[in-house]
Design a protein around this nucleic acid. Structure first.
Length: 106
DNA sequence: CTTATGACCCTGA
DNA sequence: GTCAGGGCCATAA
């Protein structure tokens, strides 16, 4: 494994652990915070690589449109939606209010 | 080496 | 508001 890839992966996981409860972050935002503004896609690759029993709040990661990047019929979608709702996040037409739930440093 | 694919984003219609 | 096109980068074949 190249160090750069590992570093990106580690940065993403770290940021993921910094997301407060009841907040969400977009892929692009995480990538930017990790130091790779244009690697928004690879954030998804990192999450995909996560074990299903991971303790990290991967479900707090959504796309730039405030939607979950899974098809509605997908089990992952239902799981993520349920977890977010359990933290107080409200879904409207399958989307959430990014203006309200978007996390920023500080 | 070239293609194809992906838990994406931005912009314009 | 939603949808489509173009772009970006890493991985697999």
């Amino acid at each position: 494994m190249n160090d750069s890839r590992q570093q990106f992966n580690d940065a993403v996981l770290y940021i993921l652990g910094q997301i407060p409860k009841g907040k969400v972050v977009t892929y692009g935002n995480i990538a930017k915070l990790a130091g790779y503004p244009s690697h928004s896609r690879h954030v998804g690759r990192v999450l995909k690589n996560l074990p299903k029993d991971s303790t990290l709040p991967w479900f707090r990661v959504i796309n730039g449109q405030g939607r979950i990047s899974f098809p509605e019929q997908s089990e992952r979608y239902q799981l993520q939606k349920g977890l977010l709702e359990s933290e107080g996040i409200v879904f409207i037409s399958g989307k959430i209010n990014l203006k309200q739930y978007a996390w920023s440093v500080g």
